[in-house]
């Protein structure tokens, strides 16, 4: 029956805590999606910049969440990869914030 099927499900929700590594990657993924949307709007000269601002903000929140995960002192291959990913996320956090700041000025200057 259903219960037996659930018990065999290897990736079911009830499996326990999510690894830090997966949490970092999940925040990366979410941030990537939000910032990609922001960029698509932002790259159009006449795109609605106010919307881009909102998507950048969401992406920034996700990057910050991903960066707040402490991967500890481990030096294993996976940990090293995760740390490199976090370093790239940190770079994009700074660049997104810079872009957001600039856009916020453009938006407030032109429409209000």
């Amino acid at each position: 029956g259903t219960a037996a099927w659930r018990a065999k499900d290897p990736v079911g929700q009830g499996q326990g805590q999510v690894q830090d590594s997966d949490r970092v990657r999940n925040h990366h993924k979410q941030a990537f999606e939000y910032i990609s949307v922001a960029l698509r709007i932002d790259e159009e000269e006449k795109g609605p910049k106010l919307q881009a601002v909102e998507w950048y903000k969401r992406g920034i929140v996700e990057l910050e969440r991903g960066l707040s995960i402490d991967l500890g002192p481990g030096t294993g291959e996976t940990t090293e990869r995760d740390k490199r990913l976090q370093a790239k996320m940190a770079t994009n956090l700074v660049m997104s914030k810079d872009r957001l700041e600039l856009l916020a000025k453009v938006v407030s200057g032109s429409s209000q």
């Binding site: 990537f32 990609s36 990869r81 990913l85 770079t91």
Partner: peptide, 11 residues
Amino acid sequence: NSVASAEQDEL
């Protein structure tokens, strides 16, 4: 992770 890494590079 390497997909993620490439995605961050793209951004």
